[in-house]
Design a protein around this nucleic acid. Structure first.
Lengths: 370, 370
DNA sequence: TTGAAAGCGCTAACAA
DNA sequence: TTGTTAGCGCTTTCAA
């Protein structure tokens, strides 16, 4: 396998020049650069990343830690991050940091903390302040997606605002008895997403002059079955049943749709339903939602990290004057209301026909940027 | 950050001994090993993977290439592989090789082919013979999950047998008009999974003395909406409608369940439905299926690769005598029939009550190993 | 703009 | 069982 020395020989220059020409670091005349590139190409030369990392101290690899891979949000974030990184010549290595204390410690110390990665992106996973601090201390930037991390940059939606937007949509349609299907306490542990969404819901009701009725607030586990179970409970009693439900995730909302169906309720005539996420199945079920874009969030987090790395490089050990007291950036990810067939005004009249609940071809989406 | 020299000094031995003691390669007396371990621990020493890789030629990192991350099967395989690798101290880095020619080439040459990985695992992705060949030529073992790769080891279910098993289940229940919802041609490109499953279906019918009716064979794109659309078409006409459907994936089968529901058909009274996969949503929908276990398959592929790597190490450049003309192993992954509420005999009588189609608590699964 | 040469932090011959 | 030492293949000073 051709090495840098072979390229140098063929191009008639030193290995130092080859390194400079190929990496773009340091001055090289145009002519030399051309000859080197040609020589490298003709030999099929590619740098050895190990040797390069060892000599330069940078691995061109970033670590992504996730709680698990079986959920749409996580994998979409990873997918977006990977695409952005690959475009810049970086790799992404994946760590499941779900394990218990000892295993987690091992992964953290042996893999993340050592020279395997230049930076870390945490997806919906709460690194402890100590973990983040140790990474930052050895110069590895950290970014969090889906939840804030002390001292790290963050990309996430404004959960309160998103929940308010969804609830306001229902209010504007004329609903007054609006239920909220939130997340149970265990899902609130790290980032308080369920709590924030409940706050947004309550704030919207309050702004409309309505009390929030505890009887209309139930919780699930963010899955379709969880949403189904909670909705079945919520909708069982015919008297003072809500006319609309705001679910904290699309998957739970889909559970609500199915439960309504099984209970003989027609959506949106008897019940309006809206979720949060922009899950791909939402379109099939005609589900209105506030969509976020996890792939885009992953890409943004990757960009944040790469630019931090580049900036550091440019200013060497001298701190970048502009980095002084510059808070790690917090990007608010975009989210938009998408109105589909599952939301309409209450009591539209018995004449209104039932929603073709599972229509695979819903009417074109209506999207409103917020 | 402490280096190997610091540990050596503290333990009163040479760096070579530290390396041997910590890696387990080479003879070290118990006492020395203890002192070294202690010194390393007290200094918080962890080897630099770059330096180690450069010196040893092994990265302790394996590359996983996937077409994309948004499907349950792929992510489950990755999850299983990652767990198995991490347990052995290996990393997994992720490559989306979905891009077109040029991008794919770049990823392949710059990342996979160079010293970033010790081995490659391809998930439901057809590496070309040339790509596999080049990897093998530079000593990097390759494993395929979900489809065979020329010259590489393989982990996959027997699609023909799985399809036959599902179809036989329906036959045994007494069905005679059994439809097959398969994959369309574009999904057949690489590994012929749709074709194989159709063969298994046809073989089972044939063995039962039945003709396979082309009118009962439709195809979808392996998604819920795809299954819904195909089933709506298939089940629309009331006369000579099938009494059972075997779908080539659980997601399509769920689409069939929903379509049947929308058409006013009761499952399993009017229509029995079975899928393939063991998708987590299947339980919620009471879907009978032939389950495979992608995480387990990922783990098996990882083990195959690691053992190849270890074997190579042991025998150095001398070929392992036992490796002579030893075909790369092909593991047949396990699959088992899981009978839930969506399958029963035909015409069970008008008295039979409709299946609580979306019951979140179906009767306990019945599983039969095959 | 270029080249010479000193490492980067380990591993693995080889010798003892 | 242990130590000495020569690399692994680059990057980056430093000097020209």
């Amino acid at each position: 396998m051709a090495g840098i020395a072979d390229v140098a020989r063929l191009a008639g220059v030193s290995t130092a020049t080859v390194s400079r020409a190929l990496s773009g670091n340091g001055p090289v005349s145009a002519g030399t650069r051309g000859r080197v590139a040609e020589a490298a190409a003709s030999l099929g030369y590619v740098v050895s990343s190990d040797a390069s990392s060892l000599a330069s101290g940078r691995t061109r690899n970033i670590g992504a830690v996730v709680p698990h891979l079986s959920r749409w949000f996580f994998t979409s974030v990873i997918e977006g991050a990977e695409r952005a990184l690959l475009r810049r010549g970086y790799d992404l290595t994946l760590y499941n940091l779900s394990g218990d204390g000892e295993e987690r410690r091992r992964v953290f110390e042996h893999h993340l903390l050592r020279n395997r990665v230049d930076a870390v992106i945490a997806v919906s996973l709460k690194l402890t302040d100590d973990e983040v601090g140790r990474l930052l201390a050895i110069g590895k930037p950290v970014a969090g997606v889906g939840g804030p991390l002390t001292g790290a940059s963050t990309v996430q939606i404004d959960d309160v605002a998103v929940a308010r937007l969804a609830t306001e949509h229902l209010l504007q349609l004329g609903h007054r008895r609006i239920a909220h299907l939130g997340g149970s306490r265990e899902y609130d542990l790290d980032f308080h997403i369920p709590t924030n969404r409940r706050h947004g819901y309550a704030a919207a009701l309050h702004a409309a002059g309505l009390e929030s009725d505890p009887a209309l607030q139930v919780s699930g586990d963010f899955t379709i079955p969880g949403g189904y179970a909670a909705a079945t409970e919520l909708l069982r009693s015919a008297h003072d049943r809500p006319t609309a439900v705001f679910a904290a995730s699309d998957e739970m909302a889909i559970g609500v749709l199915i439960a309504a169906r099984d209970l003989g309720l027609s959506v949106p005539r008897d019940l309006a339903v809206i979720g949060v996420d922009g899950h791909p199945l939402g379109e099939f079920f005609g589900l209105s939602t506030v969509a976020q874009h996890p792939e885009r969030q992953g890409g943004q987090a990757a960009e944040l990290l790469l630019s931090t790395i580049e900036r550091r490089r440019r200013w060497r050990d001298e701190p970048d004057p502009r980095e002084q007291d510059q808070r790690p950036p917090a990007v608010e990810a975009a989210a938009e209301l998408i109105v589909r067939a599952s939301t309409a005004g209450p009591a539209a009249g018995a004449a209104a026909s039932a929603l073709p609940l599972f229509s695979p071809t819903p009417s074109p989406d209506t999207a409103n940027e917020r």
